[in-house]
Amino acid sequence: MPVAWDEFRLVRAIAERGALAPAAAHLGINPSTAFRRLAAVEAGLGTRLFERHRSGYVPTPAGEAMAAAAGRMEEEVARFDREVADRALTPSGLLRVTAAATLVTDLLMPMLGRFRARYPKVQLELIVSEDALNLSRRDADVALRATRDPPPNLVGRRLATIAWAVYGPVDGPGDPADACWVTPSEAVAGGQFARFVAARAGPERVALRLNTVQGLCEAISEGVGIGPLPCSRGDRIAGLRRLSGPEPELAGSLWLLTHPDLRHAARVRAFMDHVVAEVAPLRPALEGRSIR
């Protein structure tokens, strides 16, 4: 029997997530609906697409083939969307932008208002995520990322160095050797922050670990401990002071990235040019060269 495109998407979502509930959530449907649709597809094809185990759904060879076909179909749809977008002559339509929460609050949000004022026909969708979304599948059109190694399949601009230093409350210990620490955990940025703190303090002096950089500033400001912060943020907080110079081992780069097929689309080009111009005067602060 012919299988609808939506059923291919369903099978791929289950294969990627290993369970009905997260696959249904990804597709915006109820788990019971996903269960009924999968049963109907299997009945129509006359074969099982998944083995049901306690640990989850494991695709059979037929399920793997169908999931792979869905992936190829998604790529073709995304390629068509990019070709259509590339033909637009004026900046208009939907633009999906992704960035981590800290970049959104500290950097990006003020830029969006000015961009909208200049290009009112562009509708923005902001995806706040710590994950590297797949720009090839149009999960987003443009990504603002703090990374040392941007994906090789994307194109864009390196905007600035992101400098980090150690900060603490102005009325706290002046010597890091006497202080407790706040740090991102091993799961963040490949463990570079955790290694940095471990080289300066034993585990008994780590007062708080976070699985994200979000919340670091608040924890340090509240006196939980000293810790690393981006200079562009730490230098703006009146109650904090630098306890070190910029730390080279924590430095990263700020990149603005898009898919090669989208770089000439009018709305993408306009947005990237806008962000490049907006970031330029902020480079001294981002690079730790502008101290309060």
Rank of each mutant, 00 (worst) to 15 (best):
A132E: 15
H26C: 09
E76D: 13
R267W: 12
A43N: 15
A219C: 01
D86S: 14
F193H: 12
E186D: 15
H274W: 03
A207D: 10
A177C: 05
L135I: 13
A88H: 13
R200S: 12
L229E: 07
I162Y: 09
T147E: 12
G191W: 10
L240W: 04
P230F: 02
D178W: 08
R138L: 10
M111K: 02
A15E: 04
V128G: 00
A219I: 02
P203I: 01
P248V: 09
G174H: 03
E64V: 14
A280P: 11
V84F: 06
G252R: 15
V97E: 00
F271K: 05
G46Y: 13
P59I: 02
P110C: 03
P284H: 11
L208A: 09
S185D: 15
G223Y: 04
A4Y: 07
R283A: 02
L49G: 08
Q123W: 11
S232F: 12
L107G: 00
D149I: 09
V142S: 04
A34G: 14
S129C: 13
A266F: 10
T47H: 00
L257W: 02
I226F: 03
L262S: 15
P284E: 00
R36Q: 13
L133K: 01
R269S: 15
I237D: 03
A165Q: 09
G215P: 04
T183H: 00
G252A: 12
A266C: 09
Q123D: 14
N153V: 10
F193M: 11
A62N: 05
L94C: 06
Y119A: 06
N153K: 09
L250V: 14
V276W: 05
R158C: 15
P150Q: 11
D175P: 10
D178F: 06
A21F: 04
G223L: 06
A68K: 08
A143R: 12
H259I: 02
L210R: 10
V275A: 00
R96W: 10
A25T: 14
R9G: 04
